[in-house]
Design a protein around this nucleic acid. Structure first.
Lengths: 166, 166
DNA sequence: CGAACATAAGTGACATGTCAACCATTCCCG
DNA sequence: CGGGAATGGTTGACATGTCACTTATGTTCG
């Protein structure tokens, strides 16, 4: 029943609010759109894709679980859960680690490599059409700089179970 | 065993790749950090917060489920699930809709309003310190423009169960 | 050596999101 | 009026993420 003016604690200025809401909208819509395209295209989720790309870029196609988690900025537990799911689908496999009895290697399987190669072209197209192409001018450094600044700030402020950047 | 050069399908240019990876890192770290702060502070999740803010801005503090979903760019089903959880915690309530026997109103409860008011100051601080403050210069339009462009593009390309923008 | 501690990884419970299928009501139109 | 299509909303199954805890192995140092 209270008309118009509720208690409005210190909030953001209209400009700040606009940019923040756009940020929220974009960061919710873009991954969802990518996810749908990638899944329809190649039966992979975004996290699946990230894992496969990382492994494919690694010499020998294998990586310790913790290294993978660090590289993807994932919690260890998330990595463990996700790798189990991917293993069940045959996209990766675990191999014992000779040097350290506690550890495991994650290995890209042939099926995983195939799935990745099937997925990449379409995914790149989607990233271009939904993200890179719509960006204002060509060398627009505004966004790149902003992201870099945000990233370093965030990485500094993370102190969790997350494996700290080396 | 394959040294260096695997089959590398058309991928992104180094510049594109850099910006894309920064984007991915930031859009994964920022929500996680906000989530943690908000939860520690006020026991709310980010989606909880969004719902509460929206309702608090609505005259009478009530809204049809579909309106809420549209405003938040959520799928109907997500809204339904999430509102059930929030209802169970007493943050919102459902009220019958007199005009339309199929529909319901979502109402902000006193507890919901309290939780929101407890949460806002800290959340605003976090948004400032992790997002707004680290941004390069003051009126840096680079990011704002980029986000606006991305947003309109994305909203056009969404054709799902998602309620299309009015 | 062996006890305390650190590190690698996995597990279970639970919150969140998506998709598809499902009722119930309302609309539309003959 | 009556029957099919559209609309509002819910449900169930399942994928993903987080948190707290456990297990097993390695490390350090008296």
């Amino acid at each position: 029943m209270t008309s118009g003016s509720r208690a409005e604690p210190q909030w953001l200025s209209p400009d700040e609010q606009a940019i923040w809401r756009d940020w929220l909208a974009v960061t919710s819509l873009l991954p969802a759109a990518l996810q749908r395209a990638l899944h329809a295209d190649a039966g992979l989720s975004l996290p699946d894709f990230d894992v496969l790309v990382l492994l494919s870029e690694t010499d020998g196609g294998r990586l310790r679980v913790s290294e993978l988690a660090r590289a993807l900025t994932w919690e260890r537990s998330r990595a463990s859960h996700h790798l189990s799911r991917m293993e069940k689908r045959g996209l990766v496999a675990r191999e014992e680690c000779e040097d350290d009895g506690r550890g495991w290697f994650v290995v890209l399987t042939a099926a995983g490599r195939d799935a990745l190669e099937r997925a990449v072209p379409g995914h790149v197209d989607t990233v271009r059409s939904l993200f890179l192409d719509p960006l204002p001018a060509g060398g627009d450094t505004g966004l790149a700089d902003a992201l870099a600044a945000l990233r370093t700030g965030l990485e500094r402020s993370v102190t969790n179970d997350r494996i700290p950047p080396r």
